[in-house]
Amino acid sequence: MSLPAEQPLEVVPQAFPLSEASVGAQLWIHSVAGSPCESYRLHEMGFCQRAELVKLSHGAMTVCLVCGARVGLSAALAQRILVTVAPGESRKEGGSSEVDLCHSSAGEGTFFCWILDRFRRKKGRRSRRIGDEARTRD
């Protein structure tokens, strides 16, 4: 695996939660939100700044390939890991990249799962919008 080029994090494209990344996307880890106690082990397992990560699937658990290992993350944790798109990869519009059911392993799930995914994403977008509006008002 190539060593990612050193560049300041400020110029890296906007970070977004791992839970919102497309299945199959190659990503860089931007940061892990949470207390040092909670984040430390994650860093040691390979979830540290600029580490490469491939999202393999999501649903009840988010599976990703990091440092060559398949690691399962709960939905709550996948929200806390912020990632950026790896160079050469383009992120789908809107920040919340939709899972392409025809081309991703998510498509191997069921119609029920697809509906659930859509529902979760809509809910997530709405809560973010409400949060943004509240911040704007403040």
Binding site: M1, S2, L3, G24, V54, L56, S57, G59, A60, M61, V63, G68, R70, G72, S105, A106, E108, G109, T110, F112, C113, L116
Partner: peptide, 25 residues
């Protein structure tokens, strides 16, 4: 680097498919 060469092929594995079903809500 230079010692370890990871296979560039990232095929969808049967494990992904199984994971999808066995952890389905």
């Amino acid at each position: 680097a230079g010692v370890f060469q990871k296979s560039p092929v990232m095929a969808k594995s049967i494990a992904d498919w199984l994971d999808r079903w066995v952890t389905h809500p």
